[in-house]
């Protein structure tokens, strides 16, 4: 499995750390209800198909990446840095 890191180019999966669903990008407000935090931390659509999740190029540029991919075929549709800015 290879991810095309927007900074480093195509790299083997072993350079990356996987975190989880891109839901982690949408942190509830500090005063949000418990349910919002439960959804944020635990509950997932978990699709059998296209999903978006977060990867960290740990053995590379250290960018956190949002990856759009298919959980059934492992096809990778897009990789983009979570934070904009330069490489």
């Amino acid at each position: 499995m290879r991810l095309n890191c927007p900074h480093c180019g195509p790299r083997d999966r072993r350079e990356f750390y996987y975190y989880g669903s891109a839901d982690y990008l949408n942190r509830p407000a500090a005063d949000a209800a418990l349910q919002a935090w439960d959804d944020y931390l635990h509950n997932r659509d978990n699709p059998a198909g296209v999903t978006q999740d977060l990867w960290y190029h740990e053995q590379g540029c250290t960018a956190w990446l949002k990856v759009k991919r298919n959980t059934v075929t492992h096809e990778i549709l897009s990789v983009e840095p979570v934070a904009g800015g330069a490489a």
């Binding site: 480093c8 180019g9 195509p10 790299r11 083997d12 072993r14 350079e15 053995q59 590379g60 540029c61 250290t62």
Partner: peptide, 23 residues
């Protein structure tokens, strides 16, 4: 190193791994 070394032309600098180590 899990890098495509065909891209390793002079002037290149890559962050990658040396087996299990940062490189």
């Amino acid at each position: 190193v899990p890098l495509d070394l065909r891209a390793a032309t002079p002037g290149m600098a890559f962050r990658t791994a040396l087996n299990h180590m940062p490189l």
